[in-house]
Design a protein around this nucleic acid. Structure first.
Lengths: 367, 367
DNA sequence: TGTGTTCTCGTAAACGTTTACGGAAAAACG
DNA sequence: CGTTTTTCCGTAAACGTTTACGAGAACACA
């Protein structure tokens, strides 16, 4: 028997690779490569990289330099597995059932803010897409059960939201853009004050002499639709104006919805002199319908949009609307979410809050 | 000494948990729980779950049932680590520098198609957000180096694209929505025929008697801007019309861009009788500017949009445009990407292709 | 020199999977 | 009944990290 190297060498100079034959070379280096290169143990390398105290300042610098040179960065799967956390937050996004083309420009600035704030804490934002119409239950379960993210952010919250029920039941951290009934007690939520905007719109129109005011809204399942309508109703009553069901119409929350539904309220026996649309897309479709009836928005009829957008600003006539501060909202909701998770929270610990932000009126030419 | 259970029991009835104190309970069960519950080894459980042949049909059923009952689903980090693949594809999305509010509704149907097709192969689609303006290099490196996805999909491809250079250099699989110079040789790419659309638009306008045709375009760095302009120029020359630099203007690819730039071409000494806008948002801003100058689109001037959208359809006047089939494009690019990755490809192996899809003219009222 | 403290680092276990390997039991075959 | 094949399953290693533990060295102090 040979005294020299046995068949099983204690120094595995080439680590076996799992990849199928002919597949990709190791794209980046592992912590073992780094350790071998520096003739140091992987434990020390890890500690140096993670800024632990018990490592010599000199060695730390050498490790940092080597990591930069070999452009090492830790494998996310390995890290997540060991730490029990993925260090990423998921935003659930899915197209509306009625939406064949385009959609959701609303979310981009919100996501920009969200991502910016999360990045400050070293967290990644991932947006997970769902198929249209399944209301995310399937995708959400998948994200949660496979532990793909440490928390999720929900949008398009409904009054009774099964996603919220599910997440609270399994105890998975989350936050919502938009209110639900339970928001703010067990999870952070951030919403816009659609109720006040609805009321403000009515106030403004009444002050300008209107008494017949229509409301074009989406399904009441969507909480912002519900809130808008509540504000609208309340303000009308406050002014002593009876709410006329014939002036309220429900449609898909897109151009087609506004187009399809606006003629209904206009054909009422006592037609409105003003219309409040829930958002820009519905207003666009509605104005199209009005134009086809020979009615000119801003001239023959007043138009106000609840959720403003660049579209409103550049439309002719420019539409009066209420502007949300989306990017700051994204940042804020990120803060609130992180504060609600013990593992991420600062010294003062978890605090669950609920905020409702104002919508600022931007007066333009349509009313 | 006691003969009974030693301090270190061989049956660890409670596995130690890494989580910090006071943190979350184990949210879902692991494969060990399943194995213990069935009194079976974890190897067998895994094999049963993964549909391997060497497991008794009866045991497989028992495992499946138990998995459903305990609603087990495999930890993504553990699986990725072992398999060396994350089974998810990343789409890189970032807001434009000039985009303060909203944006990118274009991508939603594309992403819907992409996600649908990927889901058929058991892959997840994640959208990673970048900060506005950094052109994704930072985020891209992060995704690649931490092995967060098995492949990426790029959009807004430039003629010379450093992201493409980077990805090919490190050998990371990817596909592009939009062409670059090298597309189709080493990576799959799918694009729209902006050149033909630009030419078709000119043809159509010339046929209707126009000779002074303006083009509002984005930066030529964005390849679709370049292609559109190339088609525009070629068609003009074909008709014996000299291209007038005063009729070509560059702006941000949003409403503000169109608004700012359209007056420039209108103030030309010999103003245009028709304008081609690169996309819906620029057209919206442009029409706003025209209206302020007392010029009525579709009446005083012809307007065509290269990339159509619902906005064009519902605008007044409804804008003539070229419709992309975004959802099928998403599905197709997913297919192409998967076919280009050996690990995912079918029996016939990897094939790299490049496709250019037509833009279909939708004639409306603006020209 | 002896004792205690502080720095610094290596060792090894663990996170939850998948899978190569081998072995026991059962089945097939002579 | 002996031999070979097949079926089925347990064992253990490995993926790339992080971190508790302990040990050696250096240092301080008496």
């Amino acid at each position: 028997m040979s005294i020299g190297r046995s068949r099983k060498s204690p120094w595995p100079e080439e680590r076996p690779v799992i990849a199928k034959k002919g597949e990709n070379r190791p794209l980046a280096s592992s912590i073992h490569d780094l350790a071998r290169h520096l003739n140091i143990s992987i434990g020390t390398v890890s500690r140096a990289l993670n800024g632990r105290a018990d490592v010599n300042a000199d060695t730390r610098q050498r490790v940092l330099d080597a990591a930069a040179k070999l452009n090492y960065s830790p494998n996310q799967s390995g890290r997540s597995l060991r730490r029990g956390a993925t260090h990423s937050i998921a935003f659930m996004l899915q197209p509306h059932p009625g939406d064949q083309q385009y959609g959701e420009p609303f979310f981009i600035p919100f996501l920009t803010g969200l991502q910016a704030k999360l990045a400050e804490s070293g967290l990644d934002l991932i947006v997970v897409m769902g198929a249209p119409g399944d209301y995310q239950q399937e995708r959400l379960r998948r994200v949660v059960e496979t532990r793909r993210a440490d928390a999720v952010v929900l949008a398009y919250t409904r009054r009774e939201d099964e996603r919220i029920d599910y997440l609270t039941r399994v105890g998975f951290p989350f936050a919502t853009l938009g209110r639900s009934r339970s928001g703010g007690k067990t999870y952070p939520s951030l919403d816009l004050d659609f109720e006040k905007a609805g009321a403000d719109a009515v106030d403004r129109l009444v002050a300008r002499g209107h008494r017949r005011i229509a409301a074009i809204r989406p399904s009441l399942n969507l909480n912002f639709g519900y809130l808008f309508l509540a504000g609208y109703r309340k303000a009308l009553r406050r002014h002593g104006i009876e709410v006329d069901p014939g002036l309220i119409a429900k449609g898909f929350i897109n151009e087609a919805g506004g187009d399809a539904v606006t003629p209904q309220v206009m054909r009422s026996k006592d037609p409105p002199t003003a219309i409040i649309f829930n958002n820009d897309a519905m207003a666009l479709g509605g104005c199209k319908a009005l134009a086809e009836m020979g009615i000119k928005p801003g001239h023959d009829i007043a138009v106000i949009v609840i959720v403003d957008s660049p579209l409103c600003r550049y439309f002719s006539p420019a539409l009066t609307g209420f502007r949300p501060r989306l990017e700051p909202m994204g940042r804020r909701l990120a803060e609130m979410l992180l504060a609600s998770i013990p593992a991420f929270a600062g010294p003062e610990g978890a605090r669950i809050i609920r905020e409702v932000w104002p919508l600022e009126l931007i007066a333009r030419d349509s009313d």
